[in-house]
Amino acid sequence: MPTVTLLTRAECAACAAARADLTRICADLGTDFDEVDVDRAAADGDPALRVEFGDRLPVVLLDDDEHSYWEVDEERLRADLTTRG
């Protein structure tokens, strides 16, 4: 099963919209996603995600590879999840 991760930060309106999109898409396809706040991860001692992705949040990772940023590419994500599932 492919892994989907949403990289976010607190009080980010685009991140909230991406979370809503992923919730709907993943529910439709019977999969889950994880959410990681890059600022919280950095504060906990792991700054790598914030360094790499912090200037273009939200970011959707599919199997740890960048899939889309700033918004969810729904058509592409559905296709990729279907072929990898």
Results as ranks from 00 to 15, higher is better:
Glu74Met: 08
Ala17Asn: 10
Leu29Trp: 07
Leu7Ile: 03
Phe53Ala: 00
Val36Thr: 14
Leu57Gly: 00
Asp73Gly: 00
Thr83Glu: 12
Arg40Met: 12
Asp64Cys: 09
Ala16Met: 07
Val51Trp: 11
Asp32Glu: 12
Asp34Val: 15
Arg24Gln: 07
Ala48Pro: 03
Val59Leu: 05
Glu11Val: 15
Leu61Trp: 03
Ala17Leu: 14
Arg78Met: 05
Pro47Met: 07
Thr8Arg: 09
Ala48Lys: 15
Met1Asp: 14
Glu75Thr: 15
Val59Pro: 02
Ala18Thr: 08
Pro2Gly: 04
Leu29Glu: 09
Ala41Tyr: 12
Gly30Met: 07
Asp37Phe: 12
Asp37His: 06
Ala43Met: 13
Pro47Tyr: 13
Leu61Glu: 04
Asp32Gln: 10
His67Asn: 13
Glu71His: 13
Arg56Cys: 12
Val4Asp: 00
Asp32His: 09
Leu49Ser: 05
Gly45Val: 14
Ala27Thr: 09
Asp34Tyr: 15
Thr5Glu: 15
Val4Lys: 01
Leu61Asp: 04
Cys12Gln: 00
Ala13Ser: 11
Ala42Trp: 07
Val59Ala: 05
Asp73Trp: 05
Asp80Glu: 15
Asp64Val: 11
Ala43Asp: 11
Ala14Pro: 07
Asp46Glu: 07
Glu75Asn: 14
Ala14Gln: 14
Ala42Gly: 06
Thr3His: 09
Val38Leu: 01
Asp34Trp: 14
Ala42Arg: 05
Val59Ser: 01
Ala79Asp: 10
Glu74His: 05
Cys15Lys: 01
Arg9Cys: 15
Val60Thr: 07
Asp63Glu: 08
Ala20Lys: 08
Leu6Lys: 03
Asp65His: 13
Arg78Glu: 09
Arg24Asp: 14
Pro58Cys: 05
Cys15Asn: 00
Glu11Gln: 15
Trp70Lys: 00
Arg78Tyr: 00
Arg76Lys: 12
Gly45Tyr: 10
Thr8Ala: 06
Arg24Met: 08
Asp63Ile: 08
Ala48Leu: 14
Asp21Gln: 11
Val36Ser: 04
Arg24Glu: 10
Leu77Cys: 00
Ala18Ser: 10
Ala13Glu: 12
Asp34Lys: 15
Cys15Thr: 05
Glu11Gly: 13
His67Ala: 12
Leu7Asp: 02
Leu7Asn: 02
Pro2Gln: 08
Phe53Gln: 06
Asp32Val: 06
Val60Cys: 02
Pro47Gln: 04
Leu81Thr: 01
Gly30Leu: 13
Ala20Pro: 01
Val36Glu: 03
Arg19Gly: 03
Arg9Trp: 12
Ala10Gly: 09
Glu11Thr: 14
Leu77Glu: 00
Ala43Tyr: 13
Asp28Trp: 11
Pro47Ser: 08
Thr8His: 08
Arg50Ser: 13
Ala41Pro: 06
Tyr69Ser: 09
Leu22Val: 03
Val38Glu: 04
Arg24Cys: 11
Cys12Val: 02
Gly54Asn: 05
Arg40Gly: 04
Leu6Val: 01
Ala43Phe: 10
Asp21Tyr: 13
Glu66Ala: 10
Ile25Asp: 01
Pro58Phe: 09
Thr5Ile: 10
Ala17Cys: 10
Tyr69Thr: 11
Ala27Gln: 09
Leu62Trp: 03
Val51Asp: 11
Thr5Asp: 04
Leu29His: 02
Arg84Gln: 05
His67Ile: 06
Ala48Ser: 11
Leu62Gly: 00
Glu35Ser: 09
Ala10His: 12
Val38Lys: 01
Arg56Trp: 08
Val72Thr: 00
Leu57Cys: 03
Glu71Leu: 15
Cys12Pro: 00
Thr31Trp: 10
Ala42Met: 13
Gly30Thr: 03
Thr8Cys: 06
